[in-house]
Design a protein around this nucleic acid. Structure first.
Length: 408
RNA sequence: CGGGCUGUGGUAUAGUGGCAUUACGCACGAUUCGGGUUCGUGUAAUCCGAGUUCGAUUCUCGGCAGCCCGACCA
């Protein structure tokens, strides 16, 4: 894509009140725009990143047998009354229509998926089953904060699994845990993330959170020095030893909750009477697991982890483009390289604007595309384009052919 | 929800009880061309309501909005 055609422009200064790196850099770079506190428009550049993250998650969910759905955001009040959450959940958005009928804006989808399963699943032969979706969630946060890390409306992947037995749920839960690690590895966050034991509510001993180390995080975790698993502060007092290895030495750290997996047991299958016939002909209540990961929060976390004073440094798998091609002159060479890259299906962002070199470099650093290729009289005289990684200081001259080959 | 801070062009800012400053952006013209080049011309703003006052963007009160801290948060 040509930068001259891009809808957004970069900004020199960030909104004065924003403190968090993700809000400042994503806004300045033209990835997102704030409509109100906790509610953002995802702009073209940001959407490219979001779609990259989405596809990685989709592949990993498909790999553990998940089937993709798209459930509604507008829910009937009755379903939420059935589970008791209409009144119990204080961050539930409630809306009324002209006739006075009430609805919930979905903060999560147990109340939709459980009754849906009831319509289609009636035999043990259908199990286990897992459904997932990418969906805009609504949560009435009293205090939205930290840019896109805690929004009132945000994009989330939620997976729900259904099982005949607790043992089967346990097995699937481990598979989902592995899938989450694969997702985190692919988006570049695995190294900084600790599996964290958190409250399991009344229905299971623990839930597991994937906590990514960052000062921007709002959770405090205690990392076991022996096994590197962690405990969330919320259960630290009643869990003095590491549940994984019994270690007792911990290091305190701030972290962002990147994902959360949960054994729900029969908490939501019971209210909807979600039973099937087992082999012996008897009815059996299903057990359920849920697995959430916020895409917008992942995008924000990546920026918190990967940036410097000049801008974002996207990991390749989630970058909006692979290479930022910068033309400093009006020569035809840059156009040629742009076409070559495109022909080879390399995602290229071409700065063909008539602005100064300094502005182009500053924009490239801010936007943070992993590779930068500069084409100028100087580089052409030296034999091609000057190619540099965003994460590194020095580049090298590569001929157009080698550039295409290296990036392919 | 409690506390704190803040609301001035699109963005970032200055200042003032009496014609509202500057920079960036944007438009036009010139200049320059490897780290936000330089110059000229133009464009555009005091969150809302009430009060005090001859006069309020400025002071007072209320509201709304934003950010931060806390509480809350599968």
């Amino acid at each position: 894509m040509r930068q001259s055609q891009l809808f957004t422009k970069t900004q020199k200064s960030a909104p004065k009140d924003e403190v968090s790196a993700n809000a400042r850099l994503l806004t300045r770079g033209g990835f997102i725009d704030k409509l109100m506190a906790g509610v953002y428009t995802v702009l073209p550049l940001g959407l490219r990143v979001m779609k990259k993250i989405e596809n990685i998650i989709r592949e990993e969910m498909n790999a553990i047998g998940g089937q993709e759905f798209e459930m509604p955001a507008l829910h009937p009040k009755e379903n939420w009354e059935k589970t008791g959450r209409w009144s119990a959940m204080d961050d539930l958005y409630k809306v009324k229509d002209a006739s006075g009928r009430e609805f919930a804006l979905g903060p999560t989808h147990e109340e939709v998926i459980a009754p849906l399963m009831k319509k289609f699943v009636s035999s043990y032969k259908n199990l286990p089953f897992a459904a997932y979706q990418f969906q805009t969630k609504f949560r009435m946060e009293l205090r939205a904060k930290s840019g896109i890390l805690r929004g009132r409306e945000f994009l989330m992947k939620d997976l729900y699994s259904f099982h005949l037995t607790e043992k089967d749920l346990d097995e699937y839960y481990e598979k989902a845990k592995e899938a989450y690690w694969k997702i985190l590895k692919r988006v570049g966050l695995k190294e900084k993330t600790h599996l964290t034991f958190a409250s399991g509510g009344t229905f299971s001993k623990y839930s597991h959170e994937f906590q990514t180390l960052s000062d921007a995080g709002e959770d405090t975790i205690y990392i076991c020095e022996k096994c590197q698993n962690a405990i969330n502060r919320e259960i630290k007092s009643k869990t003095p030893a590491c549940p994984a290895c019994k270690g007792k030495k911990f290091k305190e750290a701030k972290a962002i909750e990147a994902g959360n997996i949960f054994k729900l047991m029969d908490k939501f299958t019971k209210p909807f009477d979600l039973k099937v016939r087992d082999v012996d002909g008897k009815e059996k209540m299903l057990v359920m697991g849920c697995y959430g990961i916020g895409l917008s929060r992942i995008m924000g976390t990546i920026v918190e982890v990967y940036h410097n004073e000049n801008g974002i440094i996207w990991p390749e798998n989630v970058a909006p483009f692979k290479v930022h091609l910068i033309s400093l002159g009006k020569d035809k060479e840059a156009e040629k390289i742009y076409n070559d890259l495109q022909k080879n299906n390399i995602e290229v962002f071409f700065d063909d604007r008539d602005v100064s070199a300094g502005e182009k470099f500053a924009d490239a650093d801010l936007i943070g595309i992993p590779w930068r290729a500069v084409v100028s009289k100087k580089s052409l005289a030296a034999g091609g384009a000057e190619v540099k990684k965003r994460s590194e200081k020095k580049g090298k001259i590569l001929s157009a052919d080698v550039l295409v080959k290296n990036l392919r």
